[in-house]
């Protein structure tokens, strides 16, 4: 893995063309809210996230049916090109009041929520070698 300075202001660790950083949103919707929350996420949040450089790799719904009296868990896995892309996403999203307002709304419609970042085990040594 190489560490390089990008032409932008962001520090960058690259790994060829692989998008090796994953951003995962895990949302436990309030009972009966799962389908509507998924639709809103895809219509109102996902386009902006794509503009910030995230690529939506996978959407999962658990259990695999829409519940009206219990919670569905929605999982969204995004990929990010490198640490420079991560900081770009973070800076742009973190300074957009509309993004913060979106998550405030989601938190009101969710029982709980997590966002976390991950890499495959094979990438751990490289990502820590800074």
């Amino acid at each position: 893995m190489s560490v390089a300075r990008s032409s932008s202001m962001w520090p960058t660790m690259t790994q060829g063309e692989r998008r090796f950083i994953h951003a995962i949103d895990e949302i436990v919707a309030k009972p009966g809210e799962g389908k509507a929350l998924l639709d809103d996420y895809m219509a109102r949040y996902a386009p902006g996230a794509r503009e910030r450089g995230l690529h939506l790799e996978q959407v999962l719904v658990s259990p695999p049916m829409w519940l009206d009296d219990q919670s569905n868990t929605l999982t969204f896995r995004w990929s990010i090109a490198d640490t420079g892309g991560w900081w770009q996403m973070r800076f742009v999203g973190g300074n957009d009041p509309a993004v913060a307002a979106w998550w405030t709304e989601v938190d009101a419609r969710a029982v709980s929520r997590r966002r976390f970042f991950a890499v495959e085990p094979v990438d751990i040594e490289g990502v820590c070698d800074v």
Binding site: W87, R90, A100, W103, R113, R115, F117, V130
Partner: peptide, 30 residues
Amino acid sequence: LLGPYMLHPYHWARIDRWFDPECPERIVDA
């Protein structure tokens, strides 16, 4: 500061959630 501090995953994938408005753990003003 500009290299390891910013690039290490303990910073961006762990500590930064206290600062990130997209993370539910955020407690620090932007």
